[in-house]
């Protein structure tokens, strides 16, 4: 440490980078302890994936080549013996999470942009009529077993009649903020609340165990996050640019594609990464909606609990390691677009 002058010692309080040696030890000590807490499980995961069954079951061994001889049997099983299952799940996961992220980000960004720029004023009366009719429709179909064609046709007729009769006279306009809140609040729904009807719905149209079913479900589950983050981002873009594009003859779609999206790279990258991680790692919905063909990686991980033989720790570790790789890859790719504080803007409210 450089010598401080008498003046500095008397009048300047110590700066953070001139922390007392004791403080320094504590700060770095705490950070290193947490690094160990975070990294040790990862390390254990890595070495377990190269342990033999005997090495795992015989009590803990810690250092490869010293404590035990690493073997690639788990990896071989995964990528040579059962390669069909592994690769299928891997590709399923990649396709589903990429498509769901893309769909969710696209639809969510469009809605967020519209909410940030266009003034909507849906009539609360119409919304209420719609909601009540929807409930009546479901009750009469679901519980009283009335023919669904009849119910839906009459519900539509009543809806349009009431729209003409009531909605056009009584107007209680909702604001954009209400629509935004409605969309974001969907995130409160635990998957378990909606998954059974979604399961029945896809069963009815024979779409269970297809990619599309899972993609659509994931896209909707993550839509609130996209709308929330992107809404905040879009409101921070100066309006001049869009107005200028508008005067230059661009349509709303063109303005969105040519001006707004390129300016939102940072927000899009952060949102994409978050939605990607959430879709990639999702388990419960995938469990309901896939049985064999569309199984994703988390299902494969869970499948390593082979019942009577106990958990195949080595294989499971290998699968988890394999699962982390694409996420890290995406994080590295998107990292350069994400300026710090993207999430911050949205969270500040």
């Amino acid at each position: 440490m450089t010598e401080r002058t008498l003046y500095q010692r008397l009048f300047e309080p110590p700066r953070i980078n001139q922390m007392a040696i004791g403080t320094k030890v504590v700060v770095y000590g705490l950070l290193l302890i947490w690094s160990a807490v975070v990294l040790f499980p990862i390390y254990w995961l890595l070495i377990t994936s190269v342990k033999s069954a005997a090495d795992v079951n015989g009590g803990p061994v810690y250092i490869p080549f010293v404590d035990f001889t690493p073997s690639l049997h788990a990896w071989r099983e995964l990528f040579v013996v059962d390669y069909e299952d592994t690769l299928r799940a891997y590709f399923n996961s990649i396709i589903i999470s990429l498509a769901a992220t893309l769909l969710s980000t696209l639809i969510g960004s469009m809605a967020a942009y519209a909410l940030a720029r266009v003034k909507y004023a849906p009539n609360l009366v119409t919304v209420l009529i719609f909601a009540i009719l929807m409930i009546i429709t479901f009750v009469s179909i679901g519980i009283y077993g009335v023919d669904w064609r009849l119910v839906i046709a009459s519900a539509l007729a009543v809806f349009f009649f009431l729209m003409k009769a009531v909605s056009s006279r009584v107007k209680i306009p909702l604001k954009n903020g209400d629509i935004l809140f409605w969309m974001i609040s969907q995130r409160i729904l635990a998957p378990i609340v909606v998954v059974v009807p979604i399961y029945m719905m896809f069963q009815t149209v024979r779409m269970l165990d297809t990619h599309l079913a899972i993609i659509l479900t994931y896209a909707v589950v993550n839509l609130p996050i996209v709308v929330w983050l992107m809404y905040d981002f879009f409101t921070s873009i100066p309006r001049d640019l869009e107005e200028s594009a508008q005067l230059d003859g661009a349509t709303m779609f063109m303005t969105f594609r040519e001006v707004v999206l390129p300016l939102s790279k940072a927000g899009l990258a952060a949102t994409t990464l978050l939605v990607m991680i959430l879709s990639w790692n999702e388990y419960l919905l995938a469990l309901f909606l896939s049985t064999a063909k569309a199984q994703t990686m988390p299902i494969l991980v869970a499948a390593m609990n082979a019942g009577e033989r106990g958990i195949l720790w080595w294989s499971m570790s290998a699968v988890i390691v394999v699962m982390i790789i694409p996420v890290v890859f995406m994080a590295v790719v998107l990292q350069r677009y994400i300026s710090k504080g993207i999430l911050l803007g949205a969270v500040k409210g």
């Binding site: 719905m201 909707v220 839509l223």
Partner: peptide, 28 residues
């Protein structure tokens, strides 16, 4: 119809995959 087309996909998706299951779940 750009104003409607921008927001409708999100609204419809939420109606079909969030509100519909929510109501159906209530009935169940």
């Amino acid at each position: 119809h750009a104003r409607q087309l921008f927001i409708m996909p999100a609204v419809l998706m939420i109606l079909v995959f969030s509100i519909f299951p929510l109501v159906a779940s209530l009935i169940i």
